[in-house]
């Protein structure tokens, strides 16, 4: 029997791992996009856990839509990424700092 606590703690770890990835990754833009996907995965799992324990389908419906949005988001993110690579020939995060101050 899976318990609510343990499930939520697992997703919390997953969520914090993706946050760490976002903060510590300083070189590859594409990994940042993957971290975003990971974050959404954690959130989705959260919803499914609650949906399961509440016996309520609404959580699953929410996940269904988050998946759709995440796919759309990935498409746009990758498009911007490609533009950046085309223009600057690099996707190094630490070189993207002309805007500051």
């Amino acid at each position: 029997m899976i318990t609510l606590n343990s499930a939520l703690i697992v997703t919390a770890i997953l969520f914090s791992l993706s946050l760490i990835g976002l903060v510590l990754n300083r070189h590859n833009l594409i990994v940042l996009l993957m971290c975003v996907e990971l974050m959404l995965l954690a959130v989705n799992t959260n919803f499914i856990i609650f949906s399961h324990f509440l016996n309520d389908l609404a959580g699953q419906v929410f996940v269904f839509f988050i998946l759709a949005v995440a796919a759309a988001e990935a498409a746009i993110g990758l498009a911007i990424l490609i533009l950046i690579f085309r223009k600057q020939k690099t996707i190094n995060v630490s070189e993207l700092n002309t805007l500051k101050g």
């Binding site: 759709a68 796919a71 759309a72 988001e73 498409a75 746009i76 498009a79 490609i82 533009l83």
Partner: peptide
């Protein structure tokens, strides 16, 4: 939203 993704991706790339 998916339509927007299509429009955006095409118009960008």
């Amino acid at each position: 939203i998916l339509l927007v993704a299509i429009i955006a991706a095409i118009s960008l790339a």
